[in-house]
Each structure stands twice: as C-alpha cells, then as structure tokens.
C-alpha cells in the first residue's frame, strides 16, 4: 500500500508538473513562436452590435500590434473574434489568449472574474509548477 501510494504521489506530481510546465511554456511563447495561425474565440454577442463598437479591455490594449477581425458565428451563437499578431509584433500567444478570454468575459458578463483571495495556500516544491501555471491561468491552453 505504501509503495503504491508512493507511485501515486510521484505520478500525480509528474502529471501536474507536465501540464503546468506546458502551460508556463506556452505563456512564455514570444512572437517568434507564432506559426501565423490566428487565435479565435466566440463571444455571445450579436455581430451587428460588436462591429459597431470598439473591442474593450485587454484586447484593445494590444492596439496595432495585432490584427483583429470579426465574423458572425453560425446559429445565433454570437461573433467570432480572430486575432493574429502583425509581422514583428512583440505580443506573445499567451497575451493574445488572455486578451481574448478577458474580452469575451467583459462583453458577455460585464466583468472579468478574479481568483479567490486572499490566498490560503503555501508554496512547496511539489506545487511550485502549478502555482506558476495558475498565476497566468488565462494565457495557456489551446485557444
């Protein structure tokens, strides 16, 4: 039982580490990491409304470093927002993912949810990669 638990602990830590490391790596992605593909998100707001207004929040803050385009989503699902960094843009993929998610939240819910606080956790050797990942939780993933 003790041995199996040790395996469980090791594999669990490894799994957390791998996922967290992958998230952190993606966060550190710089403009050079871009393969030219756009980052796309769907916002549940009508296309006609959004095309008439300036996109808000952190997506607006990216300014001219990125190319933003809108198109209507099928079946009244809202508007697809596509963002592609311009040539030589200093903006990383993580910045774009965060900007898209925060902008969607602003446009839909009127706010961007903050994590619980103050924190109740302690940093340990095992959870340091997870903490690093969650500090930038909206920057990673597949978006």
């Amino acid at each position: 039982m003790r041995a199996s638990r040790a395996i469980l602990v090791a594999v669990t830590a490894a799994a957390a580490g791998v996922t967290a490391t992958s998230v952190v790596k993606k966060r550190r992605a710089s403009a050079q990491d871009h393969d030219g593909r756009p980052h796309v998100i769907t916002v549940f707001r009508p296309y006609d409304e959004l095309k008439a207004e300036q996109v808000p929040g952190s997506l607006a803050e990216l300014g001219d470093t990125v190319e933003v385009s809108l198109r209507p989503a099928p079946a009244d699902r809202g508007t697809e927002i596509s963002v592609r960094p311009r040539d030589g843009s200093p903006v990383g993929a993580g910045d774009i993912r965060r900007a898209l998610r925060e902008t969607r939240s602003l446009l839909e819910a009127g706010d961007v949810l903050l994590p619980s606080g103050p924190p109740t956790t302690k940093t340990t050797l095992l959870n340091r990669p997870l903490q690093a990942a969650t500090e930038h939780g909206r920057e990673g993933g597949l978006l």
């Binding site: 549940f44 939240s105 949810l113």
Partner: peptide
Amino acid sequence: GSCWYCSKELYSLCDNSNTNPALTET
C-alpha cells in the same frame, strides 16, 4: 449567467467562471 452555455442552462460549462481555463482546456 451571460455566456452561450449559461443561456442554454448548461451552467457548469460556463465560459467565464473558471479563472484557470488553460489546465482543463489542455
């Protein structure tokens, strides 16, 4: 309560309530 999933009453699939979407998305 405002995203497409919440509008369909699929609240646990909410697009805006998870502050760490990267982990589960991956």
